[in-house]
């Protein structure tokens, strides 16, 4: 069976300028949303206390708020979590209570005030200082990942591809962050992990395409850089589609079956895989093209051996 039957080369690069403009607009929109709406940072980053409780019947949120109000926790945010029987209560630290005991206190108050069986499902407490450190560490991790990848791709391919793939990664990360900002989905540690996985996936895609471009630059005798990139993209399109489909399939399973805790994670990946596929075509390749990738940069055709590419990079 075959989904795509392509006999002609698709002229991907013909619309690279409009695509680039579109990308820039969307990226600017993401930046604007991040600047105004900010990210809805989860407990991991802001610090505070979160308690998840379970009830046997549908939870009475109104009563819960009343009970918490009556005990001086009027700033607590009470929300359903996943099902109607699960409730998450979130609040910041307060001055005269030992922060680490806050969770237990809330649990006791609810157990006493609700009159029904309250089951402790989860207590999380993160000190404000830890949250701050984590934000810093998370940013640093992202940056380190990007630099390491840049170095590896430059070493294995060519600096123009490296710049192209890092641009693509930046695009994917920015758009995913933008989505979380626009929809105000909670951004926690698992989402950060998902974004790093998006980096991995998107890169995977970019590498496959770059690899084929390099191969064709060496193999195909006629045609300019644009033509060769088009040929390469057409040849790999089928694979790009199939892999995206299988990945999206498993992510859909994760999204629908994985439960509320994993929702943010699945959302980030679903979206990331989608934009990652787009960016490996229209960001990575067109940036490399814009920087003037040409046959001469990749031509010395040596039989594949370790270190063969290394020599090309040296002047």
């Amino acid at each position: 069976m075959q989904i795509l039957k392509l006999n002609e080369t698709v002229a991907f690069m013909r619309i690279r300028k409009p695509a680039m403009i579109l990308s820039i607009i969307v990226m600017l929109a993401a930046i604007a949303s991040l600047a105004t709406n900010k990210l809805n940072f989860g407990l991991d980053f802001t610090g505070g206390v979160k308690v998840e409780v379970g009830f046997e019947q549908a939870a009475d949120l109104k009563k819960m708020r009343e009970v918490l109000d009556a005990n001086g926790f009027d700033d607590a945010v009470v929300q359903l979590f996943g099902t109607s029987r699960d409730v998450v209560i979130r609040m910041g630290e307060r001055p005269n209570v030992k922060a680490e005991m806050l969770g237990n206190e809330i649990l006791d108050i609810l157990k006493e005030g609700m009159g029904v069986n309250v089951e402790m499902r989860r207590i999380e407490f993160v000190g404000a200082s830890v949250g701050g450190e984590l934000t810093e560490q998370g940013g640093l991790a992202m940056l380190t990942a990007l630099i390491c990848i840049l170095v590896y791709v430059a070493f294995r391919f060519e600096w123009r591809f490296a710049v192209g793939s890092v641009f693509a990664l930046f695009h994917d990360v920015l758009l995913t962050l933008g989505l979380f900002s626009v929809l105000q989905i909670e951004f926690d540690l698992t989402v950060l992990a998902a974004i790093l996985a998006v980096i991995g996936y998107s890169l995977n895609d970019t590498i496959v395409v770059s690899d084929r471009i390099r191969e064709n630059f060496r193999k195909v005798r006629e045609g300019g850089p644009e033509e060769i990139i088009n040929i390469s993209l057409t040849q790999t399109l089928s694979r790009t589609f199939i892999t995206s489909i299988t990945t999206l399939l498993v992510l859909a399973a994760l999204f629908f079956k994985g439960g509320a805790l994993i929702h943010g994670f699945a959302t980030a990946l679903l979206f990331g895989v989608f934009v990652g596929t787009y960016s490996s075509i229209y960001i990575a390749s067109s940036v490399a093209l814009a920087f003037g990738i040409s046959k001469e940069d990749l031509i010395p055709e040596v039989i594949e051996k370790e270190g063969a590419d290394q020599e090309e990079m040296m002047p």
Binding site: E100, M120, R122, F125
Partner: peptide, 9 residues
């Protein structure tokens, strides 16, 4: 001092 707690029932 305890700066972080994660409890799972």
């Amino acid at each position: 001092q305890i700066v972080e707690e994660r409890t799972v029932g």
